[in-house]
Nucleic acid binder design. Structure first.
Lengths: 235, 235
DNA sequence: CGCCATTTGTGCGTATGTATC
DNA sequence: GGATACATACGCACAAATGGC
């Protein structure tokens, strides 16, 4: 690990575990240089990282100060599967059931949407998330087959993202998300325990690799009362 | 302006106007050093900025490459008022009506939520967004009076954020957002044209200044069919 | 396969400017 | 004014990834 990264991790850990309490002042850059036996540029890079990640606030001419606790904990920015977030927020586990798994030629609307070559093959996966005995979330994924070879139903039942990033080593660059309410469809009725709800919250997700190619399109359909989305926007 | 900033702006402009097309390779760091008569550190800082802002992608051992156009345009990350986003996405304008404007002592639940001192005064503002002749969004803002002095109903009718950042020069650091569906309230019925909808989508927003103090809590209540949220998450 | 040139990544030392106290 | 600390910039050295030979 890069040295500035080590310093960052070390200091961040000390802030999380309370060794460096909120509002306390960090040692000066020169002092940290000696403590970590690093150059000033390296220390500064670590401090920049800390500030970018919301741990500290630098005050020109005064020093670097630790920000309050609850401002730190809340960071799940970036790209996370909503189900995971949802589970972690409630502190409980979600049962996942693979309701469909097929390889198919991308339908026209998907070719259009993902800007694919006609005839491209994709995996289509339906997964139902069961929470407290009720099916409340339906995830429909489309993955470009060439980019995610070797995807199986067993993997889908666990963590597709774990496979993609871990096994395949694909680098995800960014994702476009959209959230909106939609009328319940027949498929929703079939897969979910909808009670009397006439609407679902739909999160669509277009995920791109570093090279700019889209490799995934996903719809995550949530029963109204079981939907929640949180994030932190930073400037 | 700082030199690395100048280099960043210059290169970014050239990418936007097409002088440096997508997938093209930037000159090497050493070459840019000479072109801009800057040190390598300075050039690298500019390149880092470009990558952070989604303009380019660096590849160790290969070079720096310009990303595709639509990957650049789509960035309305950060903190934006949802109404503005909503309006810009539909390409139409929204009429804003200030339905309530009062100064009050922060109620207990707000003191708790915003971690205020008891007895703190806040502005409470209700604004209704009218779109195509229908009231579809109700914004309820609470601003800490001491941090946003001089707020008036006239300002509320235009852009509160414009006032806060422009006139007052306050620096917003980050915002926590939450989106969820809620049952319609009496207030919703009073202010909005709800038709038969029994639910609203509620976006809560806690906004913080750099010093870590929260100065705003807002609820934005949308009629189901008029709600849409988009963003781009980057890694 | 190894070797090498190119290019980015990291770390170091230093100098100057500027803001705060 | 002086001490301290952050911001920016420069130059140098070496490491690591890449691709051509």
């Amino acid at each position: 690990m890069a040295k500035y990264r080590q310093i960052f991790e070390r200091l961040a850990e000390e802030m999380r575990n309370g060794t460096r309490p909120a509002d306390s002042k960090l040692p000066s850059e020169t002092e940290l240089m000696h403590q970590f036996e690093a150059s000033r540029g390296t220390v500064r890079k670590a401090l920049d990282l800390l500030q970018e990640n919301g741990y500290v606030r630098k005050h020109h001419g005064k020093g670097v100060f630790v920000l309050k606790r609850d401002q730190i904990e809340f960071q799940f920015n970036g790209i996370v599967s909503f189900s995971e977030v949802y589970a972690s927020m409630l502190g409980r586990s979600i049962q996942t059931h693979v309701a469909a798994f097929e390889e198919m030629e991308a339908p026209p609307w998907l070719v259009e949407r993902m800007n694919l070559k006609a005839g491209t093959h994709v995996f289509r996966i339906e997964r139902v998330r069961n929470f407290d005995g009720e099916n409340v979330i339906l995830d429909i994924n489309y993955f470009v087959k060439d980019l995610v070879p070797g995807l199986t139903e067993e993997i889908a039942a666990r963590s597709i993202y774990g496979y993609i990033e871990g096994e395949l080593g694909l680098q995800i660059s960014y994702a476009k998300r959209k959230i909106a309410a939609e009328d319940v469809t027949e498929l929703d009725r079939m897969r979910l325990d909808l009670h009397d709800y006439e609407y679902v919250i739909v999160i669509t997700n277009d995920t791109f690799l570093y090279e700019g190619q889209q490799f995934e399109y996903t719809e995550s359909r949530h029963r109204l009362d079981k939907f929640q989305f949180s994030d932190v926007a930073r400037r």
